[in-house]
Nucleic acid binder design. Structure first.
Lengths: 261, 261
DNA sequence: CCAATAGTGTCTGTGAGACAGTATGCT
DNA sequence: AGCATACTGTCTCACAGACACTATTGG
């Protein structure tokens, strides 16, 4: 597998690089909010999903893992393809102002006109979702960006290209697969309350759930271990902390949690 | 949109063609069997899915529609992307004998060595499922094949490349989406019996269903219109024919049939 | 009559959703 | 005590699954 590239001038056009790219919707969970890792272009307020190109002699899944590692420092992260985006105008942002800024900035940052031409053409891109513990990630910008940031799902900035619809599709995929993927185990910290869990579900399903029924149904699954209470200092009963019974959880996920919402 | 190509020597390598392809899992239903349209290479007993290449200035969905039309003569067919296959060895068939045959045959059929090299390299391919009325299709072989045939899902021949896993994934996608896609309306003929419908469901879900409960639950959906009886000549009660109440069916599909199996 | 399949009715268990009631931690 | 939130119990309705029963067709 080729090494990663550290500068734009190293791009081996028409040689090692295929005409396919990958974009990652990297999910994390913090302060009872579902978040996505976004990248900001240098100088301007232009945001995109972390992504990269696929080498010709590289498996697509390999490429996704490489890109994720470059951007978060993490290996062996849960990573799952969900859709491929191939509209011929997918690099046009709906907002024309952003388009202008991006065009101007690209020309400035990418001196070599051949590389500029290559990098700005239509790429067919495949979307992957990643699920990880937000505390373990150590985001690093790439050579065209100066900042990585976790953004709450309902407070996203305007995004370039078709990246907004990629996120939407990724979210839909996540909600559909919720019963078959270990989403909550991967996103929540080791210890969590039922409220944390419920808020996570509500974020993903974009829907309020009834508190008491949620708790009863969840506990009935038999995949949680009740720990000590968490005293919050508030004038009310303290919630229990829970952790996952990992073997049982893994077992259950295989046949599907069978949860209805 | 570019016109379709009628001969291998017309391939405009590195000019109009991207390095992406499309493979279609085209579903039909006949004699109470779920079938897939397959293509046979010239001379040898080598089978593949119908597919083709994506032009650089073409939407991916456009390309899929074009390819489907080239192969079946049909337009405005239900067509739905399900997964993208990008392993670097995906053009290797697990059966080495088939590999040898294919290699030999390719060299014979594709005279130009540059085109041979181009066409045999790794393409990232996106799988689409198509759902159509088997009686309306008029399959046509492409320039490397001499036969198209509908094959029952449980009697498939050995397939080249990774096409078997593409079919598997397509079938899985179909079964998962069964409550949200108008599968039975697209695959069944206008008039059908409950047994036809049940066999279709059983093929897709790969699972036997209980006859009387299936019927009751289906009829309760209120999306069928009961027609005359179908006298079969057998010594038993004749089944009713049904057709879909299309407006109600379409309405129901939007929110999901909510059928459990 | 019988055999075979179509279609309907009934029972049971499970579980979702609504909501009432109890427990607990802090002021 | 009083308040707020956590947790538990109970009721109802819907429906899946099992299976018995009736209807129809032709031998």
């Amino acid at each position: 597998m080729p090494k990663s590239l550290s500068h734009i001038n190293q791009f081996p056009i028409n040689e090692l690089m295929s005409e396919n790219s990958i974009d990652c919707v990297i999910f994390g969970y913090e302060n009872q909010q579902l978040k996505i890792l976004l990248i900001k272009w240098k100088q301007e307020d232009l945001w995109t999903l972390p992504g990269g190109f696929i080498f010709k002699n590289e498996d697509m899944d390999e490429a996704a893992n490489r890109i994720l590692k470059e951007r978060t420092g993490l290996q062996d992260v849960f990573l799952n393809q969900f859709y491929t985006f191939g509209n011929k105008d997918r690099k046009q942002t709906s907002d024309s102002e952003s388009n202008r800024k991006l065009d101007h900035l690209s020309k400035k940052l990418i001196a070599n006109p051949k590389i500029y031409e290559w990098i700005t053409k239509r790429f067919i891109t495949t979307g992957y979702i990643a699920l990880l513990d937000i505390n373990k990630a150590n985001p690093k910008p790439d050579f065209l960006s100066d900042k990585c940031e976790w953004k709450a799902i309902d407070e996203l900035p305007q995004l370039l290209y078709d990246h907004e619809s990629i996120i939407q599709k990724g979210l839909t995929h996540l909600s559909i697969q919720l019963n078959y993927l270990p989403v909550s185990m991967l996103l929540l910290p080791k210890k969590f309350t039922m409220q944390d869990l419920q808020k996570l579900y509500e974020s993903i399903l974009n829907k309020k759930l009834e508190r008491s029924n949620f708790q009863r149904k969840m506990l009935k699954l038999g995949i949680f271990i009740r720990l000590e209470k968490q005293l919050t200092g508030a004038a009310n009963k303290a919630p229990y902390l829970y952790c996952f019974d990992k073997p049982k959880y893994t077992e259950l996920i295989k046949k599907g949690i069978g949860f209805t919402y």
